[in-house]
Structures are given as structure tokens and as C-alpha cells.
């Protein structure tokens, strides 16, 4: 099993309709119920408990108590039902939170498996038959569906800002905005407010009680809008000197050409081998041919 990739391991478990937990190296764990993914957690993303408590939805005490009840009971009770039964959470909230945390963790856990070049070997995985998460099973993803969604999310992220540069760097808002007026989403606001120039997107996510993916997306959107300090300019013709991160002399960060409202030079779209672009071109060609 040690040499097989994570996607083939998961596909095998799905085929066997396995129930248990799959530990993915030291990165996290994927829980399966009868061959479908029912929960996942990753060391880099907030888990259900953290999402619920850090966002202030329920108290850490309520979670601890429910967990104690589950571990004390010889019969495997379902921690999620316990929380819903006590009225601290609605069923919809529980399901949505489990679903959100699972997708969030999967996005980062399956990252190596999504890399189709196969250049990076995935971490070792170990399956424990029958092990369940204390919250119980509240939502399912079939394995191909989960991979599809992770791929879609990756594309969504690249559409916002096609560079991974900001992903692991501390988030540093620019001191002056490249315009007079900005529109922010709720998560973008929280990110800007939480940014202390040392926290990375993943650390901010945990602090804010927001999924790591949502936080990352907000960070990339802020980057695209020219609201964050960046080190390199993705589409620029090699600027001679770049103000350093934290450089006091330069309040303006580098901006992507065309992102400001009155950019003087015309902005050319980046050339990419993105399959969605290629598909679009193929569809365009087909449509033009159909016209003749």
C-alpha cells in the first residue's frame, strides 16, 4: 500500500465500501462510511470544532461536554446528534459545517493527488478499519465527486489570482489603496482586520474561525485587487527595483497592471495552459465552424 497514490487508495476503499479512517501521513485524516467520505480533517485547516467555537457559534464547553459523553458511553453515540438534540445547533448548521470542514480539509489533503504531473509522491497513508469520528456521520461525498470539487475549487482560486505567491506568505495589506473606493466581502473584511503582517492565510483562518479555503480565496481576491503587498508582479516586464515587504519608504505595493482603474498601459491577459481556456477555444472554433 505504501507505494500507491492517495487517489488509488481512496478509490479502492470506495470500491470496498469501507468504513474507517485513513490517516494521510501527518497531514490529516479522512473518514469513510460505507465507501463514501463522511469527514476529513487536516492539520492546516480548522476542523468542525474549531469552526463552531472560533466563530462564536457554540461554546468550547458545549463541544467538550458532548465529546466526553461520547467517549464515556460504551455504545457509540453520535456527538453531532447530541449537539442538535440539545438545541445548541440546528441540523442544517451541523451538516453544512461538516460539509464545509470536509471540503476544506480535502482540498489541502488531496493537493498532492490533484497534481496530475505526478511529480510529487503522496504521503504514506494508513487505514484503520471501523474507526469513526466522534461527531458521527452527517454528510457524504462520493470519492470521484470530492476530487471533482477539489479540482473545481483549485480552478476557482486560480481564476481569482493565478499565483500561489500569497498563499503561504504573511498577509500584509497595503497602506494606501490603489483607488478611492473599494468593495469588500465579509471574509475580505475579516482578513484585512485580522492581518497583523505576520499571520499567513492559514493562521488567519484558524483565528477567524473561517475555512482555510475561503480565507485563501479572500486573500487572492485582495491580492488581485491590489490591496495586499506582493513581492513579485506576475505579468510585469521585470521592474528594476521592487520595494521590499515592510519597506517603510514605499507605501504603495506593486500592482498588477490593469487592476487599477486608470492604468495607463493596456493590460494583456496572461497566457495559460488552463484546460478551461483550451476548452473555450475549442468551443469557439466549433461554433465558428458551425456558422459556415
Amino acid at each position: 500500500m505504501a507505494t500507491s497514490t492517495l487517489d488509488s487508495v481512496l478509490a479502492g476503499l470506495a470500491q470496498d465500501k469501507a468504513t474507517g479512517s485513513l490517516r494521510v501521513g501527518r497531514n490529516g485524516t479522512i473518514f469513510l462510511t460505507r465507501g463514501r467520505v463522511s469527514y476529513a480533517e487536516c492539520t492546516g485547516t480548522p476542523n468542525v470544532e474549531e469552526l463552531l467555537t472560533a466563530s462564536g457559534r457554540i461554546s468550547a464547553n458545549a463541544v467538550r461536554k458532548a465529546r466526553q459523553v461520547v467517549s464515556a458511553d460504551p455504545d457509540p453515540v453520535n456527538g453531532g446528534d447530541l449537539l442538535v438534540g440539545k438545541g445548541v445547533l440546528t441540523r442544517g448548521e451541523l451538516e453544512f459545517c461538516v460539509l464545509g470542514a470536509t471540503l476544506d480539509a480535502s482540498f489541502f489533503l488531496l493537493d498532492t493527488a490533484l497534481d496530475t504531473t505526478g511529480a510529487r509522491p503522496g504521503p504514506r497513508s494508513r487505514f484503520r478499519d471501523g474507526e469513526r469520528h466522534w461527531l458521527g456521520t452527517h454528510w457524504f461525498f462520493d470519492v470521484p465527486g470530492l476530487f471533482r470539487e477539489c479540482r473545481r475549487r483549485k480552478a476557482r482560486l486560480d481564476r481569482a489570482w493565478p499565483s500561489t505567491e500569497l498563499d503561504t506568505q504573511p498577509v500584509i495589506p497595503v497602506r494606501r489603496i490603489p483607488g478611492r473606493h473599494v468593495v469588500l466581502t465579509a471574509v475580505q473584511w475579516e482578513v484585512l482586520l485580522g492581518a497583523d503582517t505576520t499571520a499567513t492565510p492559514a493562521e488567519l483562518a484558524r483565528r477567524l474561525g473561517r475555512p482555510a479555503y475561503s480565507t485563501l480565496l479572500a486573500v487572492r481576491e485582495l491580492g488581485a485587487a491590489g490591496l495586499l503587498a506582493t513581492r513579485v508582479e506576475p505579468a510585469a516586464p521585470s521592474p528594476p527595483t521592487l520595494p521590499r515587504r515592510g519597506d517603510r519608504s514605499g507605501p504603495r505595493a506593486e500592482l498588477r497592471p490593469g487592476s487599477g482603474q486608470d492604468a495607463a498601459e493596456p493590460y494583456l491577459p496572461q497566457v495559460s495552459a488552463d484546460p478551461t481556456d483550451v476548452n473555450l477555444l475549442i468551443r469557439l472554433r466549433d461554433a465558428l465552424e458551425a456558422l459556415q
Binding site: L51, G56, E93, F96, G100, T185, A186, R210, S214
Partner: peptide
């Protein structure tokens, strides 16, 4: 609106 993620 949910407390932990963008709206559903």
C-alpha cells in the same frame, strides 16, 4: 448567513 462560512 452562517457563522462559520459565507452564505448558503
Amino acid at each position: 448567513e452562517t457563522m462559520f462560512d459565507g452564505p448558503l
